[in-house]
């Protein structure tokens, strides 16, 4: 049986989502996508700066039509702005997937969970496939599930920090308790960390900074592709026994076998 991830009715065979921000050269993006094997790609919507010396290129020129676009509501500081951005992106022909990212904290760039729930609720009702980016919190994830999120995307560490899976224990709880795909977004700095997330049972990971800022982004994208596949396969294979520390000195079940004691 093929291992596919289904989100919003789409079957995905790759569990690596790629973010397209911060690339030194946008021309790298098509090769990055190609080598990583990714199928879902995030993009953002920005006001045009008429004072810029050079017209910025539309990122879509570098993303083949076969990829699923996931517009990101980055820049939104509250639910209303995120909703607005999502609607515009859909009108712009980006499909009906949206990553909700509401950030009002400009120091650590941590998501505003409360506003994110509200935006998710409204957009899910409008037929969007909503993937909210949140701080990993069980009650928040349950609410997201209730309001129609298609997945939950907890952060592993603050955006762009490349600090790895700092919130691992919290993410593990989400995996245990939430019936939606759990996709780690933000914080993953190395392929080994992506593999770790997948071994834990995450449904997918979203990687951006770690690839975009690598010495060789295309090679790093390929490395992430392998890591995500390896981690996933390890999860499916079921890790072997980790030996308990040397068995305790006093047996706990001996009483069962002391003739008189048992009947």
């Amino acid at each position: 049986m093929a291992d596919v991830l289904v989100i919003g009715g789409r079957k995905l065979s790759s569990r690596l989502f790629i973010g397209t921000g911060k690339f030194p050269d946008k021309k790298l993006i098509s090769a990055v996508l190609e080598k990583s094997g990714a199928e879902v790609v995030t993009v953002a919507l920005r006001r045009i700066d008429f004072n810029a010396e050079e017209e910025e290129e539309n990122i879509l020129n570098h993303i083949d039509e076969r990829y699923i676009l996931m517009p990101n509501t980055s820049g939104a500081r509250n639910a209303a702005e995120a909703i607005e951005i999502a609607r515009i992106a859909r009108e712009a022909g980006c499909g009906n997937w949206v990553k909700i990212e509401v950030i009002s904290d400009q120091k650590y760039l941590l998501p505003d969970n409360q506003e994110t729930i509200e935006a998710t609720r409204v957009l899910a009702q409008e037929g969007f496939v909503v993937l909210p980016y949140v701080s990993p919190d069980l009650m928040v994830a349950k609410k997201l599930q209730d309001v129609g999120a298609a997945a939950v995307m907890p952060l592993g560490a603050p955006i762009g920090s490349n600090r790895g899976l700092r919130t691992k224990e919290m993410i593990r709880i989400l995996i245990d308790q939430i019936d939606l795909p759990i996709i780690v977004d933000a914080g993953i700095g190395r392929p080994s960390e992506a593999a770790e997330a997948m071994e834990m049972g995450c449904a997918a990971v979203l990687v951006n900074t770690a690839i975009a800022t690598a010495g060789d982004p295309v090679a790093m994208a390929e490395a992430f592709g392998w890591a995500v596949r390896a981690g996933r396969q390890a999860f499916l294979a079921g890790p072997g026994r980790v030996l308990e520390e040397a068995s305790a000195s006093s047996p706990l079940t001996g009483f069962l076998f002391e003739g008189a004691g048992s009947r």
Binding site: G19, K22, F23, T42, V43, L45, R46, E56, N208
Partner: peptide, 12 residues
């Protein structure tokens, strides 16, 4: 008027 463009973006 708001004139917007799709740009690179992932987690920011």
């Amino acid at each position: 008027l708001e004139i917007l463009r799709m740009v690179g973006g992932g987690s920011f």
